[in-house]
Nucleic acid binder design. Structure first.
Length: 1057
RNA sequence: GGGCCAGUAGCUCAGUUGGUUAGAGCGCACGCCUGAUAAGCGUGAGGUCGGAGGUUCAACUCCUCCCUGGCCCA
């Protein structure tokens, strides 16, 4: 047999065969080389961190990436798909800390940075093998020959160069900033890291009393201040009020309290006032916010030395709201962004009694020295209570809100003023916005909304990390004068500054680079490197340059591969890679880093919950792929819903969405291979010489090609996949193959050459369309059809064969076929029972030669002898007007319902006129209404004793009268059906010749006799014995034919064909 | 608290610039077909289109508010 069947192997087994074959053939390399001279299509792979197992969501993003890249490869473009690994950063350090069972910076430094970093480097590729094998298993084609690795010396040199570029434009600076800070990891987090770790948290809640001093101090009055961070109270230097709000002084149980007016109405402080809202106490005085500004108060906790001349004063702050708290906000400049800003503005004192490990140190209060801020909370509350400065009760978990946590170690973060290095992104915010406008986002609202909003509110990029395993910040500072600084942009420059060549085994990482001391060029001091490393997001955002070691080599390659035509990552990368790519491009370069982005949505579990290790609802990608096959998983992910919508991942529905489709495609190929035998593509007759149904299929195929190309060129992956699946199911399998089965099955002659050619073309084209989405089965079938891999084939092009009139004609035929089946169903008339006559009505636009030429096929499909296409004036059909509101509405506006109702009065003659394209008019209440052909759809009702079903203008009417002759033919078909079942029971091949014997009911035997030739042909019976049983048959059975019993026996015919 | 997205049949999803009786697949029920057969097809049941208002001759579609879920931000 020329066309190898797919056999009984599971999809997954077939895929393993393909994988072996691809590897042996080095197919990826051949596909890339084959298009090497094509137009470049640049794809950037967002580098995964290879220190964790890949998850099912990685399969999702990788499937989309793969589809787009394969599609462009098949278009003949030269597609860049270089693999990359993100190797630096805290996640790696955390893994190593866990493995070593150590915790925190002190432990790391005790171990030694050299040792620690070496372990980090080793751990990076721990899961690399798993990533690569999963990627390969799902058919994700990536060029692993020359991956970029962010810890490589060349890579780091490019990153240094970028930083130097920023510094030269005065875009790199050291500053103080209050940042979210993890006391466990000992590092501040960038805002995009912060985004990864918000969760609900129960914080303390405490109300404290600040005693006013100075002019308005008599009698004793207190400012009531609420905070969720009691540990910041010893560092209090000011209190802020909103100048536009109104404040009231209340007499509460003999104490005067000042709070904001509206808050007082509903605020009842737990443990105070017996649960009564403050607003129920008498108001002694009312103030504007501005009245309070400048008032002074006594230090709340005398534990930290603060110059009273530069502190303890009420300030004006617009950020104060009447939404929560008391309308008076405690200011601790070291522990809040707003706090720091307002203190800077007012020139007030800055204190920070908390060290980098989050512990109090150097205060005048020995009890809290050495406690972490979280441990200090209750101690501070206790002291306030003892000193009578606590209002109500301290609640350790009194306030639930969303709170930032460290995205890796899950510790609650604090806000903490740190010395830090920044990229001055605010200086080129407009450029980033401009670049963003040039990016095509899919879906667009991510770009304009989510990402655009984020850029609008951009703050400077906190770049430095006080950690170990990362690209070292290449800044050296003079020990004698810290204004003498140099930002090193290359290894040559470093050697030059050192005055000696770098060692052979130079490692730019810590701790080696830390020991590089440079003579200061501005004085005779010595320069040392700052100890920071940089944010790993900067590493990954540098990949367009660093993957080519730009600007040190590969200049041409770099230029050819900038910017990316396409990137694709999850929605969670909005503040991650999408940002770092764009920010570096805007800061250093003059062009956006990417042009098209597909943002894929999150994968949720069956119940719509986020997948998380904690929930134990994580889907194992390897097991899932092995169970269903990579193609099925890929199609499910692509076709289930638009890729940017959050998707509930339900393994069960993989079977529903894609397994059925793949099996159907497999069966369709199986059908072809069963009958094709020695047929060769060169035996194909010209398309125009084939039957109309073949030309129709070619027309449909053209349309699908257009649809898929449009969708995928526009990055709508889902619609393209759906269009292919729809075609295979509805057009190819369930119509073309179904109605043409007889042309293939021809044991006594040859299968129809044209039918084989048409099916071969359709299958080949489908495989090529499908290859980017389902690369395995499409390749297996394509190879069997053509002898070549689908992945070296071009993407199908439009052949110009589409025909509207032919599509309309076939649509009409299919509509009539299901109407006829439906009509039969209503009376239980089996399709096997032939009927004499069917009358059909179709819209005028359908009629014509093409429609007429399809009627024979329709007759066979619904098993009727004759079909008549009736005209509208036949008695069978009554015409009825159905108004088209859409067009009438445009003309009549408010009067539309009247005009629509009146249309019913159009006469049959008028309706025929409309069908002929002539406008008609009606009069009503002296008003003239004109109806154009498009204003009215002419419907047909059928009143007759025939079996009738209709759908709009389509009518099928079956003559249910059975003649004796029709009945006999029906019986003959029943007999054929029974014989076929017995053939199958006897396990005959489809072309086994038989002898057939029948005895029993005379009525059945008479029918068999009358249709002896037909039965013999259909069942491949070389001898038909009527009224006698065969001697020693292979199989013999009594069967029921329409209530009459006959014995049917079969025997293999030995006399040859 | 703010931004973005989603809410249509039991489940997964379509639904063009507002237009007539809101569709498909899966599942379910009942049939059909039986030379693609461990496949295939048809029919049916199943919907207050998240809720409430509004605009309009006409709202799943446009506007406002609200509810629920997801993501992001504060």
């Amino acid at each position: 047999m020329a066309y190898e069947p797919l056999g009984n192997a599971s999809l997954s087994e077939l895929e393993h065969e393909s994988l072996k074959q691809w590897q042996a053939e080095n197919l990826l390399r051949r596909a890339l080389d084959g298009t090497g001279s094509g137009k470049p299509f640049v794809f950037y792979e967002g580098p995964p961190t290879a220190n964790g197992r890949p998850g099912i969501h990685h399969v999702f993003a990788r499937t989309i990436k793969d589809l787009v890249c394969r599609y462009h490869t098949m278009l003949g473009e030269s597609v860049t798909r270089i693999a990359g690994w993100d190797t630096h950063g805290l996640p790696v350090e955390i893994e190593v800390e866990k493995a070593l069972e150590i915790n925190g910076k002190a432990d790391i430094e005790a171990l030694g940075i050299a040792d620690f970093n070496e372990r980090c480097k080793q751990s990076v590729f721990r899961y690399k093998a798993e990533w690569e094998s999963l990627s390969e298993r799902i058919g994700y084609w990536l060029d692993y020959d020359r991956p970029y690795v962010t810890y490589a010396n060349d890579y780091i040199e490019s990153v240094w160069w970028l930083l130097q570029q920023l510094a030269q434009k005065d875009l790199l600076y050291e500053g103080h900033k209050v940042l979210p800070y993890c006391i466990r990891c000992g590092t501040s987090l960038s805002s995009h890291e912060l985004a990864l770790g918000y969760d609900t948290h129960k914080s303390p809640s405490i109300y404290s009393l600040f005693r006013l001093v100075g002019k308005p101090a008599e009698p004793d009055r207190f400012l009531l201040v609420w905070t969720t961070t009691p540990w910041t109270l010893p560092s209090n230097t000011a209190i802020a009020v909103n100048p536009h709000l109104t404040y009231v002084e209340l007499e509460v149980d003999g104490t005067r309290l000042i709070v904001e007016q509206s808050i007082a109405q509903y605020t009842a402080v737990p443990g105070a006032t017996g649960g009564k809202p403050l607003g129920e106490f008498p108001v002694v005085e009312t103030y504007k916010g501005t009245d309070l500004v400048g008032w002074r108060y006594q230090q709340l906790i005398d534990a930290v030395k603060i110059d009273p001349d530069r502190a303890f004063i009420v300030l004006s702050g617009d950020f104060v709201t009447s939404e929560e708290g008391t309308g008076l906000v405690h200011i601790a400049p070291a522990f809040g962004a707003d706090d720091y800003q307002i203190i800077q503005r007012e020139g007030l004192a800055f204190v920070n009694p908390v060290d980098t490990a989050g512990r109090f140190s150097g205060t005048d209060w020995p009890e809290i020295n050495g406690l972490t801020v979280f441990e200090a909370n209750p101690v501070i509350a206790k002291r306030l209570e003892d000193e009578g400065k606590l209002f109500g009760r301290y609640q350790a978990k009194g306030y639930e809100h969303t709170y930032p946590f460290c995205w890796r170690c899950d510790s609650p973060l604090i806000y903490y003023a740190r010395k830090s290095w920044f990229v001055r992104t605010t200086a080129f915010k407009d450029k980033m916005l401009e670049f963003n406008d040039q990016v095509h986002w899919y879906p667009p609202e991510v770009g304009t909304g989510r990402f655009g909003e984020w850029l609008e509110n951009n703050v400077d990029w906190a770049l430095s990390r006080d950690r170990y395993w990362g690209t070292p910040l290449p800044v050296w500072i003079c020990q004698s004068d810290d204004s003498h600084r140099v930002v090193v942009g290359s290894y040559d420059q470093l050697a030059d500054l050192m005055g000696q060549p770098l060692p052979e085994d130079f490692d730019p990482h810590r701790p080696y680079v830390d020991s590089v001391a440079l003579p200061c060029r501005e004085c005779d001091g010595t320069m040392k490197r700052v100890t920071s490393v940089i944010d790993a997001w900067f590493d990954s955002g540098a990949m367009p340059y660093a993957q080519w070691h730009h600007p040190f080599e590969n200049q041409q390659e770099f230029e050819n591969h900038f910017p990316a035509d396409f990137i694709c990552e999850g929605l969670d990368q909005t503040r991650g890679w999408f940002y770092s790519l764009l920010a570096i491009a805007a800061g250093v370069h003059s062009e956006t880093a990417y042009r098209n982005v597909i943002v894929n949505g999150l994968l949720l579990d069956v119940d719509g919950r986020k997948m998380s290790k904690r929930w134990g609802n994580v889907v194992d990608p390897v097991a899932t792929v092995e169970e269903f096959g990579a193609d099925a998983v890929r199609l499910y992910l692509l076709a289930g819903s638009q890729v940017w919508l959050p998707k509930r991942f339900d393994p069960k529905s993989i079977a529903e969405v894609s397994l059925g489709f793949l099996n159907q495609l497999r069966n369709t190929y199986g059908f072809f291979s069963l009958y094709a035998e020695d047929w060769e593509p060169q035996d194909a007759p010209p398309v125009e010489d084939r039957p109309v149904v073949d030309i129709w299929l070619m027309s449909r195929l053209d349309r699908v090609v257009v649809a898929v190309r449009n969708a995928w060129s526009g990055y709508d992956v889902t619609s393209g996949v759906r269009a292919i699946m729809e075609f295979c199911d509805a057009d190819l399998s369930n119509w073309y193959v179904r109605v043409n089965r007889a042309r293939f099955w021809a044991p006594d002659s040859q299968a129809d050459r044209a039918a084989l050619a048409t099916l071969h073309t359709a299958l080949t084209t489908v495989c090529r369309l499908l290859a980017p989405a389902a690369p395995f089965l499409s390749d297996a079938i394509h190879r069997r059809l053509t002898g070549e891999s689908v992945h070296l084939a071009p993407f199908p092009t439009v052949e110009g064969r589409w025909s509207d009139s032919l599509d309309r004609a076939m649509h009409a035929v299919r509509t009539l076929a299901w109407l006829a089946r439906s009509a039969r169903d209503s009376r239980g008339l089996k399709v096997r029972q032939p009927l004499a006559h069917m009358k059909v009505a179709v819209p005028a636009s359908v009629r014509g030669d093409e429609f007429d030429s399809l009627l024979r096929m329709l007759a066979t499909e619904v098993n009727v002898r004759e079909i008549t296409v009736v005209e509208s004036d036949e008695s069978l059909v009554r015409l009825r007007a159905k108004p088209n509101y859409r067009t009438l509405g445009k003309v009549y506006g408010k009067a539309t319902p009247v005009a629509a109702k009146l249309a019913v009065e159009l006469t049959a003659a008028q309706l025929k006129g409309l069908e002929a394209g002539e406008p008609q008019t009606l009069e009503s209440n002296g008003q003239t209404y004109e109806y154009r052909p498009e204003d009215v759809v002419v419907e047909r009702d059928v009143a007759t004793d025939w079996l009738v079903q209709s759908d709009g203008p389509f009518v099928a009417a079956l003559d249910q009268h059975l003649t004796k002759e029709l009945e006999q033919e029906g019986v003959a078909r029943e007999v054929v059906n029974r014989v076929q079942r017995l053939r199958k029971e006897a396990s005959y091949d489809y072309d086994t010749r038989i002898e057939l014997g029948m005895s029993g009911s005379d009525g059945v035997l008479a029918a068999v006799d009358a249709h002896r030739t037909f039965i013999a042909r259909e069942t491949l019976a070389r001898r038909v014995a009527i009224g006698s049983d065969l001697v020693s048959p292979d199989v013999s059975e009594t069967v029921d034919i329409n209530g009459r019993q006959v014995i049917v026996s079969l025997k293999r015919h030995d006399g040859g064909p």
